[in-house]
C-alpha cells in the first residue's frame, strides 16, 4: 500500500486537529495515550487506516522521545504535513504543561500534611510499577532471541547498575544491536 490517496479526501482542518489533540492532552492522566489517539483518529473519525496507525505506533516506540508525542507528530504529519504535525504537538503538550505546573504549585501548599509524603511515595512506587509493566511487555518479546536478550541485559547493567552515561551507551550498543538482527542473508528471501 502506498501513501498516494491523500488527494482524494477533503483536507482535515487544522482547527479540528488542534481540538482533537488538545482534549487528549487535557485528559491524559496516568498515560495510556496511544489507545486514546487510536480511538479519536481511527475509530471515531476514520482519518487513518488501522495499518497506517499501527506502523506509526511502532515508529513512535522505536524513535527516541515520548511515544505519544511521536505518534502525535506522525498522525499530524500524515493529515496535514508539517503544519499538521506542529499544530497537533502544540495542542497535545500545552494543557499538560500548564496543568502539571499548577499541580506542583498546589502541592507546595498542601505538603505540610505529613501523610501526603506517604501518598506521594505511594504514587511514585505505583508509577514505577507502570514502567516495570512496560519493561515486562518488551522483555517477553525480547527473550525469544539471543542477540536482543544480550542487548537488553547489557543496556540495563550499563545504565541501571553501573550508572554509565546514557548517550554513549546507546550510541555504542544501538549499531551492535541492529547489526545482530540485520537480515544479512538477503538472497534467502
Amino acid at each position: 500500500m502506498t501513501a498516494t490517496t491523500a488527494d482524494e479526501k477533503p483536507p482535515i482542518s487544522l482547527r479540528e486537529i488542534f481540538s482533537v489533540f488538545f482534549w487528549i492532552g487535557v485528559f491524559s492522566f496516568g498515560g495510556g495515550l496511544t489507545g486514546w489517539v487510536y480511538r479519536e483518529v481511527v475509530t471515531k473519525r476514520g482519518w487513518m487506516s488501522d495499518d497506517e496507525i499501527l506502523s506509526g505506533i511502532a515508529l513512535a516506540q522505536v524513535l527516541p522521545g515520548a511515544n505519544v508525542t511521536n505518534l502525535t507528530v506522525f498522525v499530524g504529519n500524515r493529515l496535514r504535513g508539517y503544519a499538521g504535525a506542529a499544530i497537533a504537538l502544540t495542542a497535545l503538550i500545552s494543557p499538560p504543561l500548564v496543568m502539571c505546573v499548577l499541580a506542583l504549585w498546589a502541592y507546595g501548599f498542601i505538603q505540610q500534611i505529613s501523610l501526603l509524603h506517604a501518598a506521594v511515595d505511594g504514587v511514585a512506587a505505583a508509577a514505577v510499577g507502570l514502567n516495570i509493566r512496560l519493561g515486562i511487555v518488551g522483555a517477553v518479546r525480547v527473550v525469544r532471541r539471543v542477540g536482543p536478550t544480550i542487548t537488553m541485559l547489557a543496556t540495563f547493567i550499563a545504565v541501571g547498575v553501573l550508572n554509565w552515561p546514557l548517550v554513549p551507551v546507546v550510541l555504542v550498543i544501538a549499531p551492535l544491536s541492529i547489526a545482530s538482527v540485520w537480515p544479512w542473508k538477503r538472497n534467502n528471501g
Binding site: 519493561g135 522483555a139 537488553m152
Partner: peptide, 19 residues
C-alpha cells in the same frame, strides 16, 4: 531490523529507570 534492534535497548532502559 531497525525496530528489532532498538526495542531491546528501550526495554533495558525501562528497567534501569525503575531501579
Amino acid at each position: 531490523a531497525l525496530e528489532d534492534g532498538l526495542a531491546p535497548i528501550g526495554t533495558g532502559l525501562m528497567f534501569a529507570g525503575a531501579v
